[in-house]
Design a protein around this nucleic acid. Structure first.
Lengths: 362, 362
DNA sequence: TTGTACGCGTTATCAA
DNA sequence: TTGATAACGCGTACAA
């Protein structure tokens, strides 16, 4: 409250104040305050807070006691500026309302939190123009690594990322033209595999249920994998059904059943771009008295919990979302350690295996 | 003025040009670099980037051109330190693998992003000790507001938050002893309402399916609301079933059916603490040939999409997760504007109405 | 083991 | 409308 001691008050003789600094009333305690009360220099306080620095045990105790008493909370913004380490790992996801991305995020967070890193999340809403904005915002925060799902990036996004000098990790896909590191699997190959399995099982009139706008995305890769399998088997490759724009929901799957029965009524199997919409189809079929899989087989993608509990169980592609997060975290720590040691690491490509899970729906 | 040397042109291949032999080899461009190339002071560059500051249109154009050419990206860490505004809003959630919290988060993010704020997410895993750690980490980042779900905080968490001077918003509950602002509804009242509805509909032997460790949490509030309704109706209040620790899943719900049939086989209605586990019960009942609702009525909480698509549809409590996020965002902006204007705002309590949705499962 | 000097990259403040 | 100066709160580098 008392500002009578402020050194830069203009005095009555018209002498100009020397300092053009800012007024600083009632601020929260700084490291300097701790230092004064503990009779040490600020630098020693700084050291006492990092448990790898040499500080006498007694000194540290005294400092920690003061910190506790006055409720000092270190300012990581200042710390970041000085040390040039933000402590952030940025991750761009199309949506969080997807238990797989949520799992990947949780696993990643768990991994990097052990190393005092925090995640900075961005939502792209499955739109590359939004991804560009999100990436720009993230770069201003100087993250120590940037994680992105591969869904096609704008040229500007690619340029910004590559010019940043920050390690980039693309996940949930094996892009043909990766920006840098990769932790994922081939959506194309996985779709090819499950479609082939349906064909092996005797289905001959197969349809694909996908998203309306999927250019360059994982959804497109899944469609192409489906098409390749169908074509190689010499089957009809025209049965492509597009529901809502990504993310496609359970309800979208339910609604798609009508369109399917109308356009290609003799379809005997559907491969849906993700489990939730496949479940929606199953649910709607039961409602309409269409037997699954006798009248119509249904397969999904992702092995979400819903596919395990549905009746019948959902045939699907098993993806270990948790492992993607864990391995991404491991890679980030590895890259960080290497960078500290001054090493330069070549782009890593980590493959996360998938599996085909045959259940009652096919 | 003597620095008339032409700056390096950006290379078409994305290779970054480097200034040669200068004091700072290989550094990212700073504001000062932009200023020099645009023949202005750094302060003018700073102003040109804030569209509310007075800068001559011609000057701004020149500056933006330089920024684009050299690929300058402002450093928000430095900006934050200087301006004492981090641009962060912190939000602590028990889990992201919950479509309701994901919806709340998305809505909040959308709202605050319009005002150039970023969310900083923390996961508490439904544990108050973890929440404490997460809050400590967040406070170091100097967020401009902190959003928390109410699930019981440790005394230290409460103390840290209140000492911080940062606006706190508790969401998804109306706590008896709020820290500061609140955006939510009464879980107790909502549970009481849906349980009463079951009783009105003629069910007399009601069970509650909850989480194993729910002290002071929203889950506990839901249990208490159930118990109050049951007791007021003079019915058996001992049928409390505890599945796994939070978050309780679909599979936990499915597994709980066996325990229920064993312990209280004559139960005619179950109120489950959330929709996913209620769905798991429905699914398991169908599998076992137990008719829903004839043999057993089931109700959930939250109005998740799964409850709309299940067969039968799930009776539940409708909660507008999106509205909670939106209103929280609005409140944050309001508080921010007030703070800038120097006003002090009393603790706000925003109620988000819920609804009882009767469907086929009861 | 502790301290001193300085700078991290930006913006608030005042002056022109 | 623009510029000069001094912080913002901490950590690095080196000295003691």
């Amino acid at each position: 409250m008392s500002n009578s001691e402020k050194p830069d008050e203009p005095d009555a003789n018209g002498v100009k104040p020397r300092s053009r600094g800012r007024a600083r009333p009632n601020r929260r305690p700084r490291m300097e305050d701790v230092a004064r009360l503990a009779n040490v220099s600020p630098m020693t306080v700084s050291r006492a807070l990092r448990y790898d620095s040499p500080v006498a045990e007694e000194t540290r105790k005294r400092i920690l006691k003061v910190i506790d008493e006055i409720g000092y909370v270190p300012d990581q913004i200042a710390s970041g500026l000085s040390s040039q380490r933000s402590g952030f790992v940025a991750i761009c996801l199309p949506s969080l309302n997807n238990s797989h991305f949520a799992d990947t995020l949780s696993a990643l967070n768990r991994r990097i939190a052990e190393h005092d890193l925090q995640v900075l999340i961005g939502h792209t809403d499955y739109r590359s123009d939004k991804e560009e904005k999100v990436v720009e915002a993230m770069l201003r925060r100087r993250p120590e690594a940037i994680v992105l799902t591969y869904d096609g990036h704008t040229p500007r996004t690619r340029a910004l990322l590559q010019a940043s000098g920050i390690p980039i990790i693309e996940i949930w896909e094996q892009p043909k033209d990766p920006l840098d590191h990769v932790v994922g699997f081939s959506n194309h190959a996985a779709s090819y595999a499950i479609t082939s399995r349906l064909i092996q099982d005797g289905y001959t009139r197969l349809a694909f249920l996908g998203e309306a706008t999927d250019d360059g995305s994982r959804g497109a890769a899944r469609r192409e994998g489906f098409l390749q399998a169908v074509r190689e088997a010499g089957l009809d490759d025209t049965r492509l059904l597009y529901a809502a724009r990504a993310p496609i929901t359970m309800s979208d799957g339910a609604r798609a059943v009508a369109g399917l029965r109308e356009t290609w009524p003799d379809t005997d199997a559907v491969f849906a771009v993700s489990d939730p919409c496949a479940f929606g189809m199953i649910s709607e079929c039961l409602r309409l008295g269409i037997s699954v899989p006798d009248d119509l087989a249904i397969a999904g993608f992702g092995d979400f919990e819903i596919g395990r509990l549905s009746l019948p169980g959902l045939t699907t592609v098993g993806v270990d979302a948790d492992a993607i997060g864990r391995k991404t975290g491991d890679l980030i720590i590895e890259l960080r350690n290497a960078a500290r040691a001054g090493d330069i690491i070549a782009a890593q490509h980590v493959d996360v295996p998938i599996s085909i899970l045959k259940r009652g729906s096919s």
